[in-house]
Design a binder for these strands. Sequence first.
DNA 1: TGCATTACTTACCAATTGGAAACTAGTTTC
DNA 2: GAAACTAGTTTCCAATTGGTAAGTAATGCA
Lengths: 121, 121
Amino acid sequence: MIKRKTVTKSLECKVRITAITDTMQVLSGKWKIHILGTLLQGGKMRFMDLLREIDGIAAKMLSKELQDLEMNQLVTRTVVDTKPITVEYEVTEYGKTMEPIIDEIANWGVFYRNRLHGKTE
Amino acid sequence: MIKRKTVTKSLECKVRITAITDTMQVLSGKWKIHILGTLLQGGKMRFMDLLREIDGIAAKMLSKELQDLEMNQLVTRTVVDTKPITVEYEVTEYGKTMEPIIDEIANWGVFYRNRLHGKTE
DNA sequence: TGCATTACTTACCAATTGGAAACTAGTTTC
DNA sequence: GAAACTAGTTTCCAATTGGTAAGTAATGCA
């Protein structure tokens, strides 16, 4: 007799796991959520704006993460022909669909801090 | 004379960044969201159930990640005195507050796949 | 001429992550 | 007594991540 216990491994379950893996891959690394969050709040921002705004990030990281986000069509990169050329980054409409995730994550973090300090809501 | 460039660096902004960092730390690693997601769907589950259910995870990783989740009070670990002892893992009430995040992440992943296949817009 | 600013890129290095495989240990079944 | 199942732990190693610092290139200002 073969014992088959959990049959929960449904198609639905696998789809969910794939979906989560996909999202986390798009948001991989220490900085993407912060960059996206900052751009969602600030609208059009230049490279140096982001570098100053996001505490602790290095130019190399910002550059690389922006490239990743651009590749995934979450942000656009526009070179502006100013005195010294500037580059504007902006979240795409598609990128804005990430907002609910980022908001939930931020909300939970606040909730978490409150709980640590003994505050019940 | 003090030069002020970006003034967007408000307290609210810093709180948000801290909140996001906190959450992502609690959910750090490749597997925690999957474990949590699986436990949220399956209720009480044993170690071996999880090992079989979560495709690709190794015992070492499952063990370590479950310890992390337990430390953060997101799951409970209960030793059951069965024939060969079994250990049951379950998401705490606190852990269930992660559900909105995980759902949003899963939803976005589905949306992402749909966009890749066809819907050019 | 030399320094500053913008937006990067490159090189190097250290720490962390995570995977494979083997091993522990108690109990039950053949 | 051997094999198998439970729930892990341990070791060893490779890949990835991310940080520092320096370099590049174009332009403008004193």
